[in-house]
Amino acid sequence: MARPRAGSARLALVVVLCASIAGCSPIMRKNGYAPSEEDLAGIVVGVDTRDSVAELVGTPSVNGVMRDEAWYYVENTWKTVGPRAPENVDRQVVAISFGPNGTVENVERFGLEQGRVIALNRRVTEANVQGISFLGQLFRNLGNFRADDVLGPR
Rank of each mutant, 00 (worst) to 15 (best):
A41K: 12
D39F: 02
G64T: 10
E37L: 14
L40P: 03
D48T: 00
R67M: 13
L56A: 15
E75Y: 04
V62R: 09
R67Q: 15
D39P: 01
L56M: 14
V62M: 12
S36W: 10
D48Q: 02
D68F: 05
G42L: 11
I43L: 06
E38K: 13
L56T: 12
A34W: 01
E69K: 12
V62E: 15
V47F: 03
V44Q: 13
R50V: 05
V62L: 14
G32Q: 07
W71C: 03
E37W: 01
Y73E: 13
D48H: 08
G32H: 07
D39G: 13
V45E: 05
E37H: 11
V65F: 06
V74A: 08
D51F: 01
G32F: 03
P60L: 11
P60W: 01
W71Q: 04
L40K: 05
R67D: 12
V45Y: 03
D51S: 08
V53K: 00
M66Y: 00
T49F: 00
P35W: 02
M66Q: 07
S36Q: 08
V57W: 05
P60A: 09
Y73P: 05
V44M: 05
A41H: 12
E55Y: 02
D48F: 03
V47G: 01
D39T: 09
G32W: 00
S36K: 09
T49H: 04
I43W: 03
V45H: 06
D48P: 09
D48G: 04
V47K: 13
A41Y: 01
Y33N: 13
V47T: 11
M66D: 04
R50L: 08
V44G: 03
V44I: 14
V45W: 00
G42A: 13
N63Q: 14
G64Y: 06
G58E: 08
G32L: 11
P60M: 09
A41F: 04
T59H: 04
G64W: 00
R50E: 12
G46M: 06
E55W: 06
S36M: 09
M66C: 10
D68W: 02
Y33S: 08
V44D: 08
S52Y: 00
L40D: 09
S61C: 06
A34Y: 00
P35Q: 07
T59E: 12
M66F: 00
V65T: 11
R67S: 11
G64F: 05
N63E: 14
A54V: 08
N63G: 15
V62K: 08
V47S: 09
D68L: 10
A34Q: 10
W71F: 02
A54R: 13
R67L: 15
P60G: 10
D51E: 15
V44P: 04
